[in-house]
């Protein structure tokens, strides 16, 4: 029986009067790729940000690796082994590639000590970043920026990586590369929770999936079950 890494229980997120997430239940076991699907404004990013402690919970609890992390600060969540690669890449454009990576390992003294070693590891994984280590991140192409964003998240040696729309705004051939990288990460033992608009791509690679609509989880199951359920059409609209 695989260990449950992340467990989200009855989580609610509100912005003022707006209810972004309501009573969400979700679990990710070690070694899985789980995808979270849903329309724009369904609450996917809110849920991820809530898990990371970036937005406060209006209700419910989040446990990670056997410990409660809801209510703790983001740096504690990162130290415990969960990181988020945000939507839209969001690299630090005025910092060099090397400095961007250094920030990825800023969460704890131990991580900071391991910075050099981890960075070498990332350069092995992404040789393109090695070539450009002195370059400012803002001068990289979109695909390279997405690699850097993922590598930056991996610098803290996470057990679970949350990926928010890694294909957003990227050229089709780059999207292919990014999904190859996701597959390679799984092979290295990283567990992944993937939020994606491109449901087909996400279901191709995932072990299980959840569908979020109107802030609630309305459906969950294996890719086969999700495709067969027909509900995919209702909530994601494959015409």
């Amino acid at each position: 029986m695989p260990v449950t890494l992340l467990s989200v229980q009855k989580v609610a997120v509100r912005y003022g009067a707006i209810q972004a997430v309501e009573n969400a239940e979700l679990a990710v076991a070690a070694g899985e790729i789980v995808t979270l699907l849903g329309a724009n404004g369904a609450g996917k990013s809110s849920l991820l940000n809530a898990c990371m402690g970036l937005v406060p919970l209006a209700g419910g609890q989040v446990h990670f690796d056997g410990q409660r992390i809801s209510g703790t600060r983001t740096e504690h969540v990162v130290r415990r082994g969960m990181t988020l690669t945000p939507e839209g890449r969001r690299v630090f454009p005025g910092l060099s590639v090397a400095d961007n990576l250094a920030i990825g390992a800023a969460a704890s003294p131990q991580l900071r000590r391991e910075t050099a070693a981890r960075r070498t590891e990332m350069y092995d994984l992404f040789p393109r970043l090695h070539e450009r280590q002195k370059q400012l991140a803002g001068t990289l192409s979109g695909g390279e920026q997405q690699m850097l964003a993922i590598a930056r998240s991996l610098m803290s040696n996470p057990k679970l990586l949350l990926l928010d729309e890694p294909s957003l705004g990227l050229a089709p051939n780059i999207v292919d590369q990014i999904f190859d990288i996701i597959a390679a990460l799984r092979a290295r033992g990283v567990t992944i929770l993937l939020v994606e608009q491109n449901a087909e791509l996400a279901l191709d690679i995932a072990d299980r999936g959840y569908v979020l609509a109107g802030g609630r989880i309305v459906l969950s199951g294996t890719p086969g079950e999700l495709r067969a359920s027909g509900l995919e059409r209702v909530y994601l609209g494959a015409h």
């Binding site: 699907l37 957003l168 994601l236 494959a238």
Partner: peptide, 13 residues
């Protein structure tokens, strides 16, 4: 400029 970015299939349709 990227009117369909971040849209799923039904929104794109």
């Amino acid at each position: 400029d990227e009117p369909a970015a971040g849209m799923n299939e039904s929104e794109t349709a």
